[in-house]
Design a protein around this nucleic acid. Sequence first.
RNA 1: GCUCUUGUAGCUCAGGGGUAGAGCACUUCCUUGGUAAGGAAGAGGUCACGGGUUCAAAUCCCGUCAAGAGCUCCA
Length: 677
Amino acid sequence: MRDTTAAFKLQKTPVPRAVRRKEVGFPPLPRIFCPFSLPFPRPLSFLFAPMADDAKQRKTLDERAQMSDLERLRHSTAHVLATAIAKLWPDAQFAAGPPVENGFYYDVDLGHRITPDDFPAIEEEMKRVVKENQVFERVTISRSEALDLAQRGRLAALGDREVPSRFKIDLLQDIPEDEEISIFRNGDFWDLCAGPHVPRTGNCKAFKIMSVASAFYKGDASNPQLQRVYGTAFPNRADLDAHLEQLEEARKRDHRRVGREMDLFHIDEAVGQGLILWKPKGALVRQELQDFISEHLRRQGYSQVFTPHIGKLDLYRTSGHFPYYADSQYPPIVEREHLKKLADEGCGCGELSNRLASGEIDGFLLKPMNCPHHIKIFQSNHHSYRDLPVRLAEFGTVYRWEQSGELGGMTRVRCFTQDDAHLFCTEDQVAAEIRGCLELVKIVLGTLGMQDYRVRVGLRDPDSSKYVGDPAKWDKAEAALREAAATLGTAFTEEPGEAAFYGPKIDFVVKDVIGREWQLGTVQVDYNLPERFQLSYIGADNQAHRPVMIHRAPFGSMERFVGVLIEHFAGKFPTWLSPEQVRVLPISEKFLDFAGEVEAVLREAGVRVTVDRSDDKVGAKIRLAQLDKIPYMLVIGAREAESQEVSVRHRDRGDAGSSPVLAFRDQVVAEIRSRSL
RNA sequence: GCUCUUGUAGCUCAGGGGUAGAGCACUUCCUUGGUAAGGAAGAGGUCACGGGUUCAAAUCCCGUCAAGAGCUCCA
């Protein structure tokens, strides 16, 4: 058996994890801008990732009593789980077993390694406990009695043991002096627990063990690693089944799976982790989206620019990205001459490494963001107040060294392309510019049928002094953001303390069709970079003034956005976004010529069309086209060739009757042009 | 990064100390058909990579790489 006692040191003040991942499924990715300047002694990824609320407040007994019925049920089921595990493996040492968003877990340290093969046995044992319909009995005890029970190994156990219940002893110490201590008993299983619980184990009828993973005790990597058994529970079988079906649905929609099936993108070991290869079909989707967004950018008076993927290190020293956040960037590219010079000076590998880390080297950096390049474009001209706002947009590709454990699919990658733009404006223009950004978001999400999104307005914490810039400007910018959010006509929340230190921001969180939330882009007001780069424009008073910058990437990155869209549509993109919009299905090879004519007519009209020239029967061709999620199938046989018509089948609506070739062409072209859903 | 799990054909997966398996996809042939799978044959794999144990390794052990899940919504 593993001896965790030696490694286990009690921690009086648990160190909160810098980055907590609350969402189930896919983690958020609001790491869009980072025009920071303060030398926080933290890795860059900390700033790219959502900030955790500081140390979670311990729940009071009152708060716990307010646990919802479902949470109560799940927490009780966690005790049933622990009872079963304690029966099967009496040496089990339990830590915490709370209800969580989609169920519950219980952390356990155990000589035996639990695998999915063990689930049936555990569930059988749990069913027995449920069937016995044991009463959950609350017993109030004194601190010393609790300690005594724990020393006897009696807590989270079915009887006395030779080894103390060591995690429970530790947890006891976290309980404030003035708080009542209670244990809950069901049958012979006693556990330190504040409750509340359902009355009897018989209430925990509908449950399922979902998975087992590892977790650090109290989330601290210096603590022992425990096995975390996840389960879920519902009041009845039907609700449980519905939940499991939804999970299955989510699994089917997983963009990694759909992306492979539909041949949209590929990640290759030989290229590198977190680096997306957009295959032809995925590239079409992305290109359509970019064209769509560009069209609206032009309408809104943006100027599109192109900038390189690298820049001199000095640029990023000025912006503040380097060297403080070097850990989250690809290492610098050192110039050949500089390297040679270092070698001539006798600089060894160790010293080189140190100099790289400290930033005392010359070279280039793969850009971690686009703002410095755009700033340099702005600075390449003198600007009058009459020029403002200057709006520079770019589908700008950036590189970040995410920890390998954070990577996943298209939603968490090391190279991504932002729908980025930087607006240089006067303070008076900030409000209107923010409204413009939100307008674009509204149009794009509306066109895609993603009506279910919310907006978070991140304001500064009035009690903190970590923010840069003049408080009066902050007030103005915050008011502008608040006002703009209100005009959006959608729900928004204001979250004090969630602002970046350089300015307030708006985040967009979209909900997909099965209710999962995804953080996409942000709009951020920035007073910091204009200062660092000494930006200026000449005002009506003939004096130099400092412009304000707005960073905005409303859809975050093309990678993540397309990943979200794949799941949102379950791969069934609207016609305008579909990589293949129409497939012609000749009944037999006799009609290949006519099929070719139909193909030519459609292609000429700009429709993405192919002909299935295989010798499959039409049923098989339809099946394949359905699996490829192609919006329109045109069945062509003798009748159609005779009348110059096509028999139209839609992937969702089925057989739609026949239509003259040109009429179909006009209809599908109109559908594509209008970008209808 | 850390822990666990996984890595076998383009895809989905079975197998497992002694000729490498299936279905789908692919190629060829037969079939020329009417709204979700017509038939036959064939081709395709250093079993992720590198070491080790063994007469013998895809299989067992160690390491590397990669993928997936998890990493306090606290007794």
